[in-house]
């Protein structure tokens, strides 16, 4: 819930941090959307493993007769649903606040949001399991995770500004391939390295 309010507030701040006589809202729109999603996701991921740690639930999970990979995939799925939920609220608000006409760009934006989110949430799930147990964790996760958000963010911002300008999705096939490769590489690596985070 807090993450949602946070996302809405960032969008509002963005609108006021712009000089309306110089920059049209639509020109700032892709940056505003992706920066909002980035920060809201980091905030959401920061709390991802807090519940498990608070009540020793993680030990219970570790005792369960399932592989560490299964725990990882479960957490990843949970985080994806959560980050997706934040986006499901952010995107309509964004259209509303920035007065956008999506003219058929919506399916492309949704596909893009999914591709961009999957990769960094995969890494973010590993990092949040790790930073939940170190000092200064609120700061540690963004410091580690933000560099990993750069490739998806560049791709997403580039493609969505094209989509919002009414260009077809097929024009951005190169970016979509990079995003998909990023997802596959980091999802695989994350599944492989996650057990090392939980080993006692």
């Amino acid at each position: 819930m807090a993450a949602l309010v946070f996302a809405a507030l960032i969008l509002v701040i963005f609108n006021f941090a712009r000089d309306p006589t110089v920059l049209r809202a639509q020109e700032l729109a892709p940056s505003a959307l992706w920066i909002t999603i980035t920060f809201a996701s980091v905030t959401a991921l920061n709390r991802a493993f807090a519940v498990e740690l608070d009540h020793g639930a993680l030990d219970g999970l570790l005792l369960a007769p399932v592989g560490r990979e299964a725990i990882y995939l479960g957490k990843l799925l949970g985080n994806l649903v959560f980050v997706g939920f934040v986006q499901a609220i952010t995107i309509p608000l964004f259209v509303l606040f920035f007065n956008l006409d999506l003219h058929g760009a919506l399916p492309g934006i949704l596909l893009l949001a999914f591709l961009a989110t999957l990769g960094f949430t995969a890494v973010g799930t590993v990092f949040s399991a790790l930073t939940a147990r170190v000092q200064f964790n609120e700061l540690m996760l963004p410091v580690l995770l933000l560099p990993f958000m750069v490739p998806p963010l560049i791709g997403a911002a580039q493609v969505s500004s094209k989509l919002l300008a009414g260009r077809p999705l097929a024009e951005s096939a190169g970016w979509l391939q990079i995003l998909a490769t990023y997802d596959i590489v980091f999802l695989t690596l994350s599944v492989l390295v996650f057990p090392a985070v939980l080993d006692e």
Partner: peptide, 27 residues
Amino acid sequence: ERARYSAVVGILGAMLVPFIHLSVWMF
């Protein structure tokens, strides 16, 4: 614990460098 955590970050970071390179290059 430090060794395991930092190894995880080290591996993921090393894989990230080519992606950053590629995506900024396209920029």
